[in-house]
Amino acid sequence: MKHRADALFRTVALGTLLLALAALGALVYDIVSGGIGRLNWQFLTSMASRRPEDAGIYHALAGSIWVIVLTGALALPLGVAAAVYLEEYGGRSRVARLIEINIANLAAVPSIIYGLLGLGVFVRVMGMGRSVLAGACTLALLALPVVILSTREALRTVPGSIREGSYALGATKWQTIWYQVLPMALPGILTGLILSLSRAIGETAPLITIGALTYIPFAPDGPWSPFTVLPIQIFNWVSRPQAAFKENAAAGILVLMALLLLMNLIAVFLRDRFQRQGRT
């Protein structure tokens, strides 16, 4: 009897897990079957249009790449600098502890709140307008907590003996960090950066909030250009009643997912190299 209950429980638990995986399967099936027919060269190279069969994803793809590259360029130096401070300098001081708690809490603030922050600070007070730059600044703040946490983990994997070896040669603290610690931690740092950017690239709400446009028939040509991104274009198409636009949405999702897959593959590749380097 006892064992029957155990076996039953095990089956239920496993069944739940399989159900969750089945949901993922259904999601993938739904999107692929809905969008694969629309995915062609015309779709990838055309701009937005009022007629679904003429519409394409090029402007949104270009917008997403613009925004994400700028986001990375902002989040990497700031995040690494903050992580280096907390891991190598801050020690156990009260200020460092306060910053840590703050970062942990920021990581759980809803992304749409960052959008309101971006709207208030970047778009209005700093006068960036509804530009690529304002979007990138907003997403950079959103990505920062994750970049900081993953960078700290990467720094922690650098053995203390490397630091001691450097100090024993008369290196200063910064020289030790710059020449020894950061190069060793770099693959880990980049892995964390790419993973956080792959989350940022799927963000929709904060960019809608700062006023990225939902209909824009051209690709951005600079940081000050107005823009749209893949998820916003997808949202725009999903919200239209016509079935043909829904098909566009599914195809757009396929493009977005392909981009995500690519970023994750790069991250896995880096992590793999990092681990191999650690072993020798």
């Binding site: 999601l27 999107i31 690239i201 799927g202 709400a205 997808i234 999903v238 999702i253 977005l256 995500l260």
Partner: peptide, 9 residues
């Protein structure tokens, strides 16, 4: 890691 807009669809 699936973007939320995809879940919306």
């Amino acid at each position: 890691g699936v973007p939320t807009v995809v879940y919306g669809y």
